[in-house]
Write a protein that binds this DNA or RNA. Structure first.
Lengths: 209, 209
DNA sequence: CTTGTAAATGAATGAACGTTCATTTATAGA
DNA sequence: TCTATAAATGAACGTTCATTCATTTACAAG
């Protein structure tokens, strides 16, 4: 009678295997892309036969959904838990948090935006909603700062996307041990972001040297 | 004796079919990703049997390489051909050019950076070299501007990546007929970029309201 | 020590994959 | 009109894919 397909796991060994599946899938998806990774490859990494994966996840798609959803959940929870010195400029908090988290969890971040199109529509909607919650954090900071005159942003939603795109690009080229430390990266980007939204006028084009 | 596998096409019909293959592959690759698209799907779009594709491209990989390489070539050629009013700030030229080109050729741009990892190493190296040539254009603008005191960038390579990442993110959310025109997008981003590299000091953190 | 069941196996399923190729069809140049 | 060959067909190639399932193995609870 034994129906397969993901019953509630309870034994400790099962939970540990499920974790190894997640870890292996994460590395493979990040390296080659969801569509180019086979269940057989994941099984090999885990040290198990392909069929055994289905004791832990009903389908390959569910592994992807699990990875992406738990990433977004972790990201939002990490922001809530982040601690900065009192009175630190909220924009500085966000920029430093974002850079640190995205360098720390580069694989999760990478697949969470590279593999969006491989999510079935229902799963896509869930992830997209979380993404918007995260963006809203920065939009809120910019809007409050603009209202108080501390920042000048003409369109807070656009500025949010610009800043997040700029910061999220870092893990694509940053390598540990390169000529810039993580601290230096943070400082460089923070400075650019601060200036980008600073309440200053730029003397327009057509000036020379 | 008829060996197959991509002889030099000469007949007009063949060139036209090859073009339709490129067009169909571009749309499919952009929509679903290289690995998730089958030669059969491309053949269906073109209105031809799968085997016929091999009269025009030796492998699926060669279609991808062709699309990405010609995109980079077109991009660099378009920059060389771009015309702006005399004495226009070179940074403004670059920002406006980049946004316009990337909105115009969204599919090509998209696959050229999403499908990098699906390129075989040899093809990857070729594309990557072109990409560096393009980045060097902006780095050069920033360095010259910094030397003359017009801009202030602490690290021109980092600023280059920051700016390009910021601008390249636009096509992921911009939709024609949205509440912002392309012109408005250009102006908003240009203003942020200008300020980000402007020679100004930002009064540091810990200030309130 | 027995038992229930979680976990893994080993083998199989049908479907889809990229690619090949002998053959047919179409067409430009002689 | 004949001919060479480009272009497309239709069928097949071997391989790999995600998934299923009856069976075996391992282990915690009674």
């Amino acid at each position: 009678m034994a129906t397969n397909a993901t019953k509630p796991q309870s034994r400790a060994k099962g939970l540990e295997t499920a974790g190894r599946v997640r870890k292996a899938a994460l590395k493979r998806f990040a390296g080659a892309g969801y569509a180019a990774v086979s269940m057989r490859e994941i099984a090999t990494d885990v040290g198990v036969r392909p069929g055994a994966l289905y004791n832990h996840f009903p389908t390959k798609q569910d592994i992807l959904k699990d990875l992406m959803l738990s990433h977004m959940t972790d990201l939002l929870r990490a922001w809530d838990a982040a601690v900065f010195a009192q009175d630190t400029d909220p924009l500085e908090c966000f920029v430093r948090f974002h850079i640190r988290y995205h360098l720390e969890r580069a694989d999760e971040v990478f697949i969470s935006y590279m593999e969006l199109r491989n999510l079935e529509p229902e799963n896509f909607a869930v992830i997209e909603a979380e993404r918007r919650r995260y963006e809203a954090i920065l939009t809120d900071i910019l809007e409050k700062g603009a209202a108080s005159g501390r920042y000048a942003v003409e369109d807070a939603r656009v500025a949010t996307r610009a800043i997040i795109a700029m910061l999220t690009g870092i893990p694509t080229w940053y390598r540990e041990g390169g000529h810039l430390s993580e601290q230096q990266i943070e400082d460089l980007y923070l400075n650019m972001v601060r200036k980008a939204v600073a309440p200053i006028a730029i003397n327009s084009q057509r000036e020379t040297g």
